[in-house]
Design a protein around this nucleic acid. Structure first.
Lengths: 342, 342
DNA sequence: CTGAAAGCGCTTACAG
DNA sequence: CTGAAAGCGCTTACAG
């Protein structure tokens, strides 16, 4: 490997001069600069970041912990974090962690490599085998505790997205607003007989969305139409729940707690040869990429993952800059995305 | 930050002893080991990987260059690379590069951080604005040249996936076999009047697939049914191409050069209220995640991205181990995935 | 404009 | 079983 010393010898100067040229100092005579630049090019010398970091202390890199490449919300967040980081001279290293052990390993990798900051995205341990959601949540919780205890005595800045950790600034999605916007749009379109398909895990944001559904139906005086089917929060769940729902009645519209459920519902409706939206309308939540791919294209409410990533990285930069953050949370605004299914 | 020296002082031993304990040497008295372990726990000391790397030279990390989180083939490759790496004590850092400058920056980040190896996945520069595919390819090519020139004088192992770089071992997808398996399955199902929808870029694997289509139709004596529609290789292209195709005739089956095209074709067929597959069958290529989400679910041929990632990392480990690789290429076997659209 | 010295936090190689 | 010395490749802080 070519080192700074090698280049220095070739040029007949001290390593310090090479360092100055590399770092763009203007305290170098033009003629020596030229000589050095040439030698660098010839030798293919590139500064050893490892050595530089060791002395400088900071690494100009931040680590991102996330789960599941298939959840587009997460890759959207990742993507915009990277974008903002890159623009500001930071590199990001990310770790896709799907179990406790792996997460611990990745955290230690980040810490051992002295990342300047860590952004924690929603973690879903063992979600590839979605057999036991509750257990997955428990494992996530266990890691979050480990994370908290480990990180509090290290010099890293931390920001989370949709994740609550003591003393950590969080970028929160607005699940309540998402449900509200979906319901409002259905009301505006004149639907009264609106059913809901929800996850069978009645906690967290699922519960929030159900609450919105119930309350807004009551406010409108549509109590008699209230009808909720529950299943797993994935396409298959949407398939089955819609099947059961159609066994009871054909509502004018269905509010699905997320897009995967909605996509499943769409499939079942198509199978029954009902026309969407004239015979039955469907609205989702999240705005995943697939919404563009369904037949008909799915109307939904975006949780604005890209914005979340952008804000997360911006807040991180502030922390890294020694600034204090206002409050403890930033709530991401949501957006109704009108397509064809309503 | 707690350093090895701090812990040493607390324990009244030399840093060397701490290092031995941390690295699991058994040349340490049991009593001192205990003392040290306790001090480590109390202080929250964690070895500075940066310092360790500087002296050891290797980093036990490999870098992966890729583009586009939305192409599931790539995230699948990434995912299995990470899996194999993790099992073998390696960490992976990946960079999502979508233009030349960003790619150069990421490469330098990898090199500067002295990664032990680099895996290059298919690169698609500027693909988010797919306006000019040819230009994107040119930019990719430009980077690949920069990559080649830069890397050849560094001490890194390199493996590519579906990418040709001089002297570099490549994991190749078998596009020809994919097309062959799709066509064969349609023939087995008794279809004769088979159309094809292809990309309007008639080079690379697109050309390979078209060649297979033409040749196999001829071999069967179905020349008179040959009919090719071309458009961009995305869902919208599939929409439009299918629309044009249906304006001419309703073939028994359509071979789509990739799944995105097929998904678009499916949508258009649904819009025309034709029944799939009884009135018209559709087969894709690649096996992306969405194939499960279409109505009906898309029959396709998997390019086996996960296997590609696994093999790539395994070969990388061999290189890192100082072994020579047989030949210059590994061709990934493909797999027919039967669902509902044929 | 340039350089000598010291040090970042570890490990290697040797000595005992 | 333990430690002193040297060094990994840089940069900081100082001197000139």
């Amino acid at each position: 490997m070519v080192t700074i010393e090698d280049v220095a010898k070739i040029c007949g100067v001290s390593p310090m001069t090479i360092s100055r040229v590399v770092n763009g100092s203007d305290l170098v005579k033009e003629s020596t600069r030229k000589k050095v630049l040439e030698a660098i090019k010839e030798t293919g010398y590139r500064p050893n970041m490892i050595a530089r970091r060791l002395v400088q202390g900071n690494s100009k890199t931040i680590g991102v912990l996330f789960s599941n490449y298939y959840n587009q919300a997460y890759t959207d967040i990742l993507f915009s974090i990277e974008e903002v980081a890159y623009k500001n001279g930071y590199n990001v290293i990310n770790a896709n962690v799907d179990d406790y052990e792996h997460a611990v390993n990745s955290l230690n990798f980040f810490l051992g490599n002295k990342v300047d900051g860590i952004i924690v995205l929603p973690l879903e341990m063992n979600m590839l085998n979605v057999i036991d959601y509750k257990q997955a949540m428990a494992e996530t919780q266990k890691f979050l505790e480990y994370f908290y205890n480990t990180v509090k005595e290290q010099e890293v800045s931390v920001v989370t997205v949709s994740q609550n950790i003591e003393d950590v600034f969080n970028i929160a999605f607005n699940f309540t607003e998402m449900a509200q916007k979906a319901m409002n749009f259905l009301f505006v379109k004149g639907y009264r007989d609106i059913a809901m398909i929800n996850s069978n895990l009645n906690d967290g944001f699922w519960a929030d969305k159900e609450r919105v559904y119930l309350q807004s139906m009551k406010e409108k005086g549509y109590e008699k139409y209230i009808c909720i089917e529950r299943d797993i929060g994935l396409m298959e769940g949407g398939n089955r729940a819609m099947e059961r729902l159609l066994g009871k009645k054909i509502p004018q519209a269905v509010f699905c707690a997320n897009d995967y459920i909605a996509i499943g519902a769409l499939q079942t409706i198509n199978k029954h040869k009902l026309t969407i939206p004239s015979e039955i309308a469907v609205i989702g939540n999240d705005n995943v990429y697939f919404c563009e791919m369904t037949a008909p294209k799915l109307t939904t409410v975006s949780l604005n993952a890209k914005l979340a990533g952008k804000v997360a990285m911006e807040r991180m930069l502030k922390l890294l800059n020694g600034e204090k953050l206002d409050g403890s949370e930033y709530v991401v605004e949501t957006e109704l995305i009108i397509r064809e299914s309503v």
